[in-house]
């Protein structure tokens, strides 16, 4: 899979592989639990200050399908949301004391169709 990001964010490509294959909140949450905190922090430190720029870039594309480089950038931003939980609140990849690994189902028994 190509890890190319839009040109303005090419410097973040080194992190893209962490997140671009993860389509669901569940898979991103599991990835966060499996990542060392230092790696999450390094990713956060490089990307969080760019978040507003990343999203301004993506907002210009309207609401439907994003071009593939932009779609990857959005996945990176979703990965940042997950990493930010670890960095901004817990100072740890996993919730202190939580069972490892654990999954919180998206939908699951409560699922609704769209």
């Amino acid at each position: 899979m190509s890890a190319n990001l839009p040109a303005a964010f090419a410097d973040l490509e080194q992190f893209a592989h962490l997140w671009i294959g993860l389509e669901t909140m569940e898979s991103r949450y599991r990835a966060r639990q499996d990542m060392p905190f230092d790696a999450l922090k390094q990713f956060y430190d490089a990307t969080a200050p760019r978040l507003a720029d990343m999203m301004a870039h993506l907002d210009a594309f309207g609401s439907d399908t994003l071009p593939s480089a932009e779609a990857r950038l959005y996945r990176v931003a979703l990965g940042l949301v997950e990493a930010a939980q670890a960095v901004e609140f817990f100072a740890a990849a996993r919730l202190p004391g939580a069972p490892y690994p654990h999954d919180v189902a998206v939908g699951g028994q409560a699922a609704l169709s769209d």
């Binding site: 909140m25 301004a56 907002d59 994003l66 959005y74 817990f90 654990h102």
Partner: peptide, 22 residues
């Protein structure tokens, strides 16, 4: 949500709720 920013904000809100629920 209409924009990518709004979709991301919603993802953050649900993620935050998930973790505080946990």
């Amino acid at each position: 949500p209409v924009t990518a920013s709004e979709r991301l904000a919603i993802a953050q809100a649900t993620t935050f709720a998930r973790d505080s629920g946990m």
